[in-house]
């Protein structure tokens, strides 16, 4: 019996194709999750900056950075 006609070979090919399809699908899902995770991180970070702006973090940073830090200079 030739390989093409063999039911077991045909089953093997079908399983191979199914495997490739699953792998591609899996890759697409992983890529999607990666991009979605990245977008979530950017959104969360932007949200934190906006929250910081609302509670006065920028002013606090400016006030602190406008004074000489004695620890930085090396004086306790």
């Amino acid at each position: 019996m030739e390989a093409e006609a063999c039911p077991i070979s045909r089953l093997g090919e079908t399983l191979d194709r199914a495997g490739d399809c699953f792998q591609n699908q899996n890759m697409r899902i992983r890529s999607f999750l990666f991009v979605a995770g990245l977008a979530l991180l950017v959104a969360l970070s932007t949200g934190l900056i906006i929250k910081g702006a609302k509670v006065g973090d920028f002013e606090e940073t400016e006030l602190n950075a406008s004074m000489i830090c004695l620890s930085c200079v090396g004086i306790e």
Partner: peptide, 30 residues
């Protein structure tokens, strides 16, 4: 400009959550 680590530590030392600095780290890092 301000130092991110110095500012981050300042917020921690005054017992405030450094929202802005954390967001900045996240945005630049991402």
């Amino acid at each position: 400009f301000a130092c991110p680590m110095g500012s981050f530590q300042h917020f921690l030392a005054v017992r405030q959550i450094p929202f802005y600095i954390l967001g900045f780290f996240g945005l630049v890092g991402a």
